[in-house]
Simulated scan of single mutants.
Amino acid sequence: MITFPNAKINIGLHITEKRSDGFHNLESCFYPVGWSDVLEVIPATEFSFSSSGIDIPGDPAKNLCVKAYELLKKDFSLPPLSMHLLKIVPIGAGMGGGSSDAAFTLSLLNQVYDLKLSTEALENYARTLGSDCAFFIQNKPVYCYEKGDRFADIPLSLQGKYIVLVYPNLHISTAEAYAGVKPQAPKVNLLEALQRPPAEWRHSIQNDFEKGLFEKYTVLPELKAKMYALGAEYAAMTGSGSTIYGIFEKEVDLQNNFNQYTVWKGELL
């Protein structure tokens, strides 16, 4: 069986406080986008995991897809299987690609083996794998808080609008991003700001990671400015970087811009 783990963007991202467990509390809006990996699972005599596409650093045995399988195997009698991941979504790009792979693995195994796990149960499993993994279980626009793993529904739809995502081939680690941020109470009520039209977000909704990273990597503010020059209603960096996105009223002609970078564009749902 094949599934397509998709990416997400952050619309606004406030780092509000440092937690006693070493993590940070934050608030943001997570919104799914169509840039996707491809995950295939087939029956096998012994478990195996392989990948192609973008090279995934580290030990394959510690890949989040493998961890998701092992997590469910502790509680259920899962048969061995062969798992292959075609990695397309850039790594370290602020789009939650690895988290999505893990969550989609849980959902796929739940479906294939009829484990009858509820949405809540799947989200609880996902939370043990990473802070934003749980989002990809329901995979719909939400307001997120605490570590980014608690959600509230929001009346936000960007259906019919278009998005351009540009990854400038720059890997930014989470530790590097947080090093440039000082947690503080938000100056803007994000939930209220999100109720306004996207064209009004530019002056109210921000990603706290931008300040420090934009000073360090000048390509990032340049890409954001280019999005606005092309007519974006709203543009920002997603997550802890380095992908910059622009939301447009209609499909945009990139006019040979961003040719040296990794680009995805499509309609929002």
Rank of each mutant, 00 (worst) to 15 (best):
G97S: 06
N139K: 11
P57S: 10
L81P: 00
A44S: 15
I88F: 00
E267T: 13
A61Y: 01
C133E: 02
I54N: 03
N256V: 00
L13G: 06
K67I: 05
N124S: 15
Y31D: 05
S51Y: 14
L115A: 06
D149P: 06
N6M: 01
N189I: 09
E251Y: 00
S173Y: 09
N259D: 14
L106R: 04
G148C: 07
A44P: 02
L71R: 14
H24L: 11
E222S: 14
K8E: 03
S20R: 12
A232W: 11
F214P: 03
L13H: 09
A177F: 08
I54M: 05
L191K: 15
E267A: 11
K74A: 13
G97P: 08
Y125V: 06
G246W: 09
A68N: 04
V89H: 03
S48P: 02
F214A: 03
A121W: 00
C144S: 15
G231F: 07
E233W: 14
I244Y: 04
V33H: 03
T3P: 01
K224D: 07
Y145T: 09
A44R: 14
M237A: 10
L108E: 08
I163M: 12
A134S: 15
V219W: 01
V263M: 08
H14V: 01
P79E: 10
A177H: 09
V181N: 02
W264Y: 15
S204G: 00
Q260I: 08
K147L: 13
A193Q: 10
G241H: 08
A68Y: 00
Q195V: 00
K87D: 08
G231L: 09
K187R: 14
E70T: 03
Y125F: 15
G180F: 12
P197E: 06
Y167E: 02
Q206D: 00
E222C: 05
Y125N: 06
C29A: 13
L39D: 05
P90H: 07
L109V: 10
M1I: 13
W264C: 12
P80A: 09
E222N: 13
G148L: 05
N189Q: 12
F214Q: 05
K87I: 10
G92Q: 04
C133W: 02
V166G: 05
P186W: 06
E251H: 03
K8C: 04
T128S: 15
S50H: 12
P79Q: 11
P43L: 10
M1D: 10
V181F: 05
S52E: 15
Y162P: 02
L194A: 03
F214I: 11
D21L: 07
V38Y: 04
R127Y: 01
